[in-house]
């Protein structure tokens, strides 16, 4: 097991100005990771690959993760002056975390047999700022995995030699692994529908109204 935190400190001194943040993992696996700013990703990756003490020459796994926009309600205790008297008042503060797409890289070293070192990089948002630098020029193993993330999550990788859809057909217009993807409504018969399935069954048995666009309706 390698010490991710010390690598983070070393990286900060070796590559000053790079956005590197240590992300702890509270679960029993204790696989902590490094959050790298997207623009510095290539420099950090190259440093990790070339460093004689680490030699991360094997990029095992590249994962896309979708994080929706979420609001966190937190109760904050505040001291307020009420009627000239100091009182402790609880206040709910709503904090909105904008959504983003995340790419997680698992690095190992074959000659030194250590790992995993986990890197993560985040896009600005989920709609128009979705570019990250490609690591395919450094590790070829990222080639298909980045294409898959581009296909299923919609992250565009700058510098990828051949960025096309990997799994879905080329005419497909969405990114189906995103959390808010709505699947096509091709209802399949259930022998004893109930609840929401019954509602869908009823919707499919009424003939489609004439003003609805015919393409979105299924038989």
């Amino acid at each position: 097991m390698i010490d991710t935190e010390s690598i983070a400190n070393e990286l900060k001194t070796a590559l000053p100005g790079c956005g590197i943040e240590f992300v702890a993992n509270p679960s029993p696996s204790a696989q902590s990771s490094l959050l790298i700013q997207g623009t510095d990703l290539v420099a950090v990756a190259q440093w990790l690959k070339d460093h004689s003490e680490y030699r991360f020459d094997y990029l095992s796994n590249v994962t896309g993760v979708d994080h929706l926009e979420k609001t966190i309600k937190e109760k904050v205790k505040k001291t307020q002056v009420v009627d000239g008297e100091e009182q402790e008042v609880e206040e709910t503060v709503e904090q909105t975390i904008p959504g983003y797409l995340e790419v997680v890289y698992h690095l190992y070293s074959m000659p030194l047999r250590h790992g995993p070192l986990i890197l993560r990089a985040r896009t600005g948002n989920r709609s128009n700022d979705v570019a990250l630098p490609s690591l395919t020029p450094i590790w070829r193993s990222a080639e298909f995995q980045e294409r898959e993330i581009f296909d299923l999550y919609g992250v565009t990788f700058d510098g990828h030699p051949d960025l096309r859809r990997l799994l879905m057909w080329d005419e497909f217009e969405d990114h189906p692994m995103r959390k808010d993807y709505v699947e096509p409504d091709d209802y399949e018969y259930e022998p004893t529908p109930h609840g929401p399935v019954l509602e869908r069954a009823n919707a499919h048995q009424t003939p489609p109204s004439t003003d609805a666009p015919s393409e979105t309706q299924s038989d």
């Binding site: 509270p26 679960s27 029993p28 696996s29 696989q31 990771s33 095992s60 796994n61 698992h106």
Partner: peptide, 10 residues
């Protein structure tokens, strides 16, 4: 229900 966190096993 595992605790929040992540793991990679191979």
């Amino acid at each position: 229900r595992p605790k929040p966190g992540e793991a990679y096993g191979r």
